[in-house]
Deep mutational scan, measured.
Amino acid sequence: MASQGTKRSYEQMETDGERQNATEIRASVGKMIGGIGRFYIQMCTELKLSDYEGRLIQNSLTIERMVLSAFDERRNKYLEEHPSAGKDPKKTGGPIYRRVNGKWMRELILYDKEEIRRIWRQANNGDDATAGLTHMMIWHSNLNDATYQRTRALVRTGMDPRMCSLMQGSTLPRRSGAAGAAVKGVGTMVMELVRMIKRGINDRNFWRGENGRKTRIAYERMCNILKGKFQTAAQKAMMDQVRESRNPGNAEFEDLTFLARSALILRGSVAHKSCLPACVYGPAVASGYDFEREGYSLVGIDPFRLLQNSQVYSLIRPNENPAHKSQLVWMACHSAAFEDLRVLSFIKGTKVLPRGKLSTRGVQIASNENMETMESSTLELRSRYWAIRTRSGGNTNQQRASAGQISIQPTFSVQRNLPFDRTTIMAAFNGNTEGRTSDMRTEIIRMMESARPEDVSFQGRGVFELSDEKAASPIVPSFDMSNEGSYFFGDNAEEYDN
């Protein structure tokens, strides 16, 4: 783990906690998980779902989305002020799938948001429990990260689609708070800032007046979040320049895209947490497990152990491969979309394939898809080993990566060399080191050039047997250095459309 220093740990961010010791953190995270579980059980009762239907990941996603929508204050306010045809701002819903006479049927349900809020609060001892809501947002974000390569979004903001390893959390809503900021990748933060800068260039009043003052505060806050992700002084200094700019424009845009590229080699610290679907927490609570009393951590053995003992089902389209669908969801559960496939294969105990080789589309089923041909199958979400999630980018030494994705962002704290394609990355730096950030740029390029592919990161860190909950005997895996390590390699994943 990167030293926490003055930073709060993510469990504290996750639970809005002030400084807590490890036991208190485990208890408050457990409380959050228990609340999600209780809410899910109650919703299944309301909807009269069978046990099997309640364990269907598509039903879980609909129920999670309903509660997130019920608590989305800004959108609710907007919907009330701008009524649109056929949208009731006070209601929320989605597809629920039921097994009827041996076939899967889709039923569109509609609930009062007020009623959903009441059920959620009741499951969370009367609190709004925003930490639990954020947790579900991060699960949705991790699922998107594993399912889609955001080529269009990258290109629109002047970045290269091969930089997708920097895009963790790119679909997280803005209201996801400190826990959300911690899991956002460098590219995601750059993209958010670039969008602001572009608006400022096109709209003279963007930075002016009372609204402009708020915009400015948001801009500086985002700059500080991004600065905190960088691990070298030169990158941090460049972020200070971007933040202090009187009138952010093209120079800042250039600096930010430069920094994003540099992060492929001088990786930023991005938190990883295993956020599971509500249909995993519900049955665990129903079986009598007391998360608050037992304590829970999002970055240790607990999620692995929970998945070892969970039964989750998914709808499967006619030509999809259930094992591939399982891999997709497994990666999402562990926030591992940008991790090295060699490491993932070792931990999972079966070969993890790149996205383009998977015969599976996303987990969600569109409303126009034919239910007649839908089957369902068990998702295999178990693992051979477990490993500690990392909050750091690993040290800054790398190795060759593949054509589709030119770097990785480690999820697990496991000893290995970190793949990246130096030639491709360095070719993108057209040696432009003039301007006010020239000395920093020169320094950053120097550090990137001296990074050695064969150097090892996370020295001495290994994986653990599932029986080793105290992480007492690390097993340090050895990897084939020459092997392909990137998930979005030469990829044809669908595009994420909101």
Rank of each mutant, 00 (worst) to 15 (best):
R8W: 08
E11P: 01
G34L: 13
F39S: 07
I41L: 15
K48I: 08
S50Q: 15
S50N: 05
G54W: 12
R55M: 07
Q58V: 08
Q58Y: 02
R74G: 07
E80N: 09
E80V: 03
P83D: 00
I96H: 01
R99Q: 08
N101Y: 14
K103S: 03
E115L: 01
W120Q: 06
Q122S: 05
A123C: 11
N124L: 05
N124A: 11
T134V: 14
H135N: 11
I138N: 10
L143A: 09
L143T: 15
Y148Q: 04
L154R: 04
R162P: 05
R162T: 12
C164K: 12
T171G: 04
K184D: 01
V190G: 07
I197C: 02
F206A: 10
G209I: 08
N211R: 04
G212K: 09
E220C: 11
M222A: 04
L226V: 14
M239E: 02
R243C: 13
R246G: 06
A278L: 11
V280A: 12
A286R: 10
R293L: 06
G295A: 11
G295I: 07
L298I: 10
D302F: 05
N309W: 14
N309M: 13
N309E: 10
V312H: 00
E320I: 04
S326E: 01
S326K: 02
V329D: 00
H334E: 00
R342Q: 05
V343A: 12
I347N: 11
Q364C: 14
S367M: 06
L381K: 03
L381R: 03
R384F: 11
Q398F: 02
A401F: 07
V414M: 07
V414G: 01
Q415M: 04
Q415V: 09
R416C: 02
N432Q: 09
R436S: 06
S438T: 13
M440W: 05
I445T: 10
I445W: 03
R446C: 10
E449K: 11
R452L: 04
F458P: 00
R461E: 02
G462I: 03
F479D: 01
N483I: 11
N483P: 06
E484D: 09
S486F: 11
D491P: 01
N492E: 09
Y496D: 10
Y496E: 04
